[in-house]
């Protein structure tokens, strides 16, 4: 299988921050790779390097068979990018936005218009197609932006945090749209802060932190590494914590994490462990406020991989990069 995206040793430094510290990536044709990491991990910087928006300080990248540094224009012909900040012109209608993009891809007027109508239809924007896009909801704007990335039906698609900031319903819709794209055979690189999203959409996941890949694998492999489901218990009184910890440890695979009166542990078979814990709790003088199972989150993955919580620091490379874009 040929790699449609291949990056080697990408490095990008800003004054005090190293946004990318030697990132390697490989996305085989027709597959979906999710770049998973907290804010400031370097996801957006990686995307910008691969889509010719940013020139890496070191390293090389080949996208759709073309060297990103040697022939950026040719790369732009072969990719579609949908960014974190919907790149649509708010004064233009959806139709005008897409027609403009088509024209800039070199299509004739008629072809660009037909393609615009087709995409509006496909993304359920036909009714809103002739309204200025500033009247759109967040989800509609993202869909329009994604439609913009698809105008030339590019073989490689790059989606930077496609659902960040969307509500649950809009996120579900976006996932459906992305799944459709994948079935039609596109190669896709997407970045996300949500393990669930990577799990739902991607074949392969690369976890990045401080501009470097710290783990790679399928969602299942990562979860196995992270330890599957979590059993969480909240008790009412501080003096009950010790007893509760002992009971939870009895059904857990590993150590019990304590945070005030909240206890968390990794469990193997969640349902069985929960049933056993509840049975054990019945005869004990412990007041349970909450108890339940949850799937591992990005925080859990991070905790397992790095031993620390995934926290976005204010000096994130992304925030830094924004300031850098318009030099004073």
């Amino acid at each position: 299988m040929t790699a449609m995206i291949q990056a080697q040793g990408l490095v990008k430094r800003y004054k005090e921050v190293t946004a990318l510290a030697g990132l390697d990536l490989e996305v085989p044709e027709g597959t979906v790779l999710a770049l998973l990491g907290p804010n400031g991990a370097g996801k957006t910087t990686a995307v910008r390097c691969l889509t010719t928006l940013l020139r890496p300080d070191e390293g090389s990248a080949v996208v759709a068979g073309v060297d990103v540094l040697a022939d950026p224009t040719e790369v732009r012909r072969r990719i579609g990018l949908s960014g974190q900040y919907a790149a649509v012109d708010e004064h233009l209608t959806g139709f005008e936005n897409l027609t403009m993009v088509g024209r800039l891809y070199g299509m004739g007027k008629k072809q660009a218009r037909e393609r615009a109508r087709e995409l509006l239809e496909r993304f359920a924007l036909s009714d809103a197609g002739d309204r200025p896009s500033k009247t759109y909801s967040g989800g509609m704007r993202r869909r329009l932006d994604l439609a913009g990335a698809l105008v030339s039906a590019p073989p490689v698609l790059v989606l930077d945090e496609p659902t960040t900031g969307l509500d649950v319903r809009a996120r579900q819709q976006m996932w459906d749209v992305i799944r459709d794209l994948v079935t039609s055979g596109a190669t896709l690189l997407l970045t996300t802060q949500y393990l669930e999203e990577a799990d739902k959409l991607a074949d392969d996941i690369v976890v990045i932190d401080h501009g470097r890949a710290i783990a790679q694998g399928t969602a299942d492999q990562l979860k196995a590494q992270t330890g599957g489901e979590r059993l969480e218990l909240v008790v009412a009184e501080a003096h009950e914590v010790d007893t509760a910890t002992r009971l939870l440890a009895g059904v857990a695979m590993g150590e019990v994490q304590r945070d005030e009166r909240t206890l968390t542990a990794t469990v193997d078979d969640g349902q069985a462990a929960l049933a056993r814990l509840l049975a054990d709790l019945r005869d004990q003088p412990v007041t349970v406020l909450e108890v339940g199972l949850r799937r591992p989150t990005l925080d859990d993955v991070f905790l397992a991989l790095t031993g620390r919580v995934a926290e976005a620091d204010d000096q994130s490379p992304e925030a830094h990069e924004k300031q850098q874009e318009v030099p004073a």
């Binding site: 040719e74 012909r77 960014g83 900040y85 649509v88 891809y105």
Partner: peptide, 22 residues
């Protein structure tokens, strides 16, 4: 232009195979 450069649309323009002077 200063306004254009601050808007999201500039990223769309930059990712398109269009003339850098357009």
């Amino acid at each position: 232009l200063a306004e254009d450069m601050q808007k999201g649309i500039i990223d769309r323009f930059r990712s398109l195979p269009m003339s850098r002077s357009a």
